[in-house]
Computed example of a mutant assay.
Amino acid sequence: MDLVGVIIVVSVALFFTYTNGFHDSANAIATSVSTRALTPRAALAMAAVMNLAGAFLGEGVAKTVSKGLIATPEGDEGLIIIFASLTGAVVWNLITWYFGLPSSSSHALFGGLVGAALAASSHVHWDGVLEKVVIPMVVSPVIGLLLGYLVMLVILWAFRRANPHKAKRHFRIAQTVSAAGMALGHGIQDAQKTMGIVVMALIAGGYHDGHSIPVWVKFACAAMLSLGTYAGGWRIMRTLGRKIIELDPPQGFAAEATASSVLYTTAFIFRAPISTTHIITSAIMGVGSTKRFSAVRWGVAKNIVGGWFLTMPAAGLVAALAWYATDFLVG
């Protein structure tokens, strides 16, 4: 039973990674596509490759997910909790993708973990949830907003005497680098989150000791994230690339450079699993504010932020219902 359960849970985890890829592909490439720095297909191919590479750079985020948020019992009980967690995350990903809302796949997963654990009366490491999830969820968008604003101000000052057309042409070239950096950061963060879930399933099923990440788990999660990324998330891409603000190449470069720097810092220094969606969206808002405050479509931004705060409880509720249903069927 454990082996079958492990296979099912790992398969659902990899499907979640695939939905994460097409849901979050816009995070890496929406700005470079909207400014015409890259064609959509070229941008998606580049993002897929960089996602694959990023997945192999470190294990800190994966270990935070696998041991720092909930206590997972061994055996079928633990596997049901993980299965229900993933179900909540996948359902929320598909709902928000359908409506073109750039919500966080990461927080859908975390909400699913907490919701399923509470339904199962399993222990939740609330200090870990607060320190590694809730605080970064609130602080990272503020940092992205302010840092994006400051980076754009520096660019405007540094190129104040430059020929506008020539500067934009150069920034289109620079955006290929910043978009690649953003995609690499997405791989570092988001592939590792699913690696942590797969390790939890292997431990619960009795097929792994410790929290190290087997190579096959790294490769499988990286490959599925890359495939999902290449499939593309056109609905969300339009929201990030056009609906918040009409970006030009310097603004796109500033937003991507800001977001990727925050992703690297949180992954390598703090080992905190932050949302790539939150950080790129807030960076775009900060960059756009330098043009004029009204240039940002704050109504769209308000709906996006509302979705951020709804994600964890909504995914948690779906995960709890999934736990009750699965526990009833298995029992």
Rank of each mutant, 00 (worst) to 15 (best):
K218L: 12
G233I: 02
W216S: 09
T277S: 15
E256N: 13
R271S: 12
P250D: 02
T239H: 06
H278P: 12
W234S: 14
T258V: 11
L247P: 06
W234N: 13
G252C: 11
E246Q: 12
Y230H: 12
V262G: 01
W234D: 14
D248T: 15
W234H: 14
S261Q: 10
S260W: 07
T229V: 11
V217N: 04
L225W: 03
S261E: 05
T266A: 09
R235Q: 14
M237H: 02
L247W: 09
M224Q: 07
T277V: 07
I245K: 00
A272L: 00
T277F: 06
T276V: 05
H278L: 06
F219A: 15
A272P: 01
I274A: 01
A223D: 05
A259I: 07
W216T: 08
A222V: 05
I279S: 04
L227A: 15
T266S: 10
A255G: 13
T276A: 13
A255D: 00
P249V: 11
L225Y: 06
K243L: 11
T239F: 08
A220T: 13
M224T: 15
T265L: 15
G228L: 01
L227W: 11
S226P: 00
I279T: 15
M224L: 15
P249D: 11
R235N: 14
I245F: 01
I245D: 02
A257C: 12
I279H: 01
P250K: 03
G252A: 10
T277Q: 07
C221L: 04
A223K: 00
A231W: 12
G241E: 11
G232H: 04
G228M: 03
I236W: 09
A267M: 03
T265Q: 01
M224A: 13
K243T: 00
W216F: 15
G232C: 12
I245A: 08
T258G: 13
E256H: 04
T265C: 09
Y264N: 05
E246P: 03
Y264I: 15
M237R: 01
A259Q: 06
S275K: 04
S275P: 13
G232S: 12
I244K: 01
I279A: 05
T276S: 15
K243V: 00
T239P: 09
S275V: 10
I236Q: 10
M224K: 02
L263S: 03
D248L: 05
K243M: 12
G228R: 03
S275Y: 07
T265R: 02
